[in-house]
Write a protein that binds this DNA or RNA. Structure first.
Length: 160
DNA sequence: GCCAACGTTGGC
DNA sequence: GCCAACGTTGGC
């Protein structure tokens, strides 16, 4: 199975690139996704080693701030069973969990984060999901070509 | 199964 | 903070 590529959005006030980098093992579970399409990507399509563009939304400017990877297999999002969590879902059953997640690991910093306005200007990224108007999906597939272009622009470096 | 109302997302 | 776009809910 060929390696796939993804873009994953987060509001840095809630969970940021720096939060991921400082997590134990630079790894954290991607909890709180409550959208079926995004869930399906994690549950059915993501594989360990897949590349992840880590994207900050609702900041100025929004954009890609780091490179991460999928680690391990999908499992049930524990927050759905936690009444104290804002992601609690009373309709989800332990024996048939509704929400799934994967763990994400920080891999590389970007020498230059790639902002949304910039993404819109880069040749070859015209069809990228994240720049399309009204695109709210928090997890999006990225093509190998788009991944390559963004690496070229962002100049990944070791996490320091 | 339709679709209006509602809640959320996320750029600006 | 605004509000357009979108997804979900629930009455019928």
């Amino acid at each position: 199975m060929a390696k796939k590529y993804w873009l994953m959005k987060t509001e840095p006030d809630a969970f940021s690139w720096s939060d991921l980098k400082t997590a134990p093992g630079r790894t954290e579970m991607w909890d709180g996704v409550r959208n079926y399409q995004a869930r399906n990507f994690m549950r059915d399509d993501m594989k360990p080693g897949d590349g992840v563009l880590f994207y900050h939304s609702r900041v100025n400017p929004p954009g890609i701030v780091g490179l991460a990877s999928v680690t391990g297999k999908p499992y049930a999002d524990p927050t759905q069973f936690d009444p104290d969590s804002k992601y609690y879902d009373p309709k989800s059953k332990t024996e048939d969990p509704r929400w799934w997640l994967v763990d994400i690991k920080a891999e590389r910093d970007l020498t230059r984060p790639v902002s949304l306005p910039e993404l819109k200007e880069i040749p070859g990224l015209e069809d990228m999901c994240v720049i399309q108007r009204g695109m709210r999906l928090s997890i999006q597939p990225v093509t190998a070509e788009e991944w390559k272009i963004i690496r070229r622009v962002g100049k990944p470096k070791a996490i320091g």
